[in-house]
Amino acid sequence: MLTAFLFALTLALSEPPAATPPSIPAAVFIEAMPKDAKSASWVKKNTKQGDTVVFEAKIGGRAEPFVKNRASFMVADRALKSCDEIEGDTCGKPWDYCCESAESKKANMLMVQIVDASGKLLKCDANGVHGLAPLAVIVVEGVVASVDDKGNCTVDAKKIWVKPAAKKS
């Protein structure tokens, strides 16, 4: 009787197990760079929803390329020059591509997101995870989640290769 009471008391006093915060699965990040990567602008022009794509891009496109608390970020075609690639530029946030026109940015940028098994966007930050950072060069292998003729395009990333920072170009 006493044992049962103590057991019940222990159960009552013990804290409920904390829910594990969502995070990007480590398996998403790969060591070997996928081959035959296209450009981000090529993806926007030549794919439709559901297509599997492999493309290379640089994280950036606006002052805050990463969406807070969501595994989603903006990338830019490597043909575009980020401010740090422009000689003499002293831009404080060189990943915002402020020197590019709005039209050029619209044509050369897309969103990359990481979703769960049910297709829902993961509720966690991607910034700083496994080398993901503004101006990081990445190769994404994924599926086109949406694309339209207004310049919008979102890719669900299945695998991401991050170019080592020292070799960033």
């Binding site: 606006r62 807070k68 608390n69 989603s72 997101q113």
Partner: peptide, 17 residues
């Protein structure tokens, strides 16, 4: 909904700027 959801929406809609 959370602000992150709306943020993700506006981020993905380049056309709305």
């Amino acid at each position: 909904a959370e602000i992150g959801d709306v943020d993700a929406f506006t981020s993905s809609r380049l056309d709305l700027e």
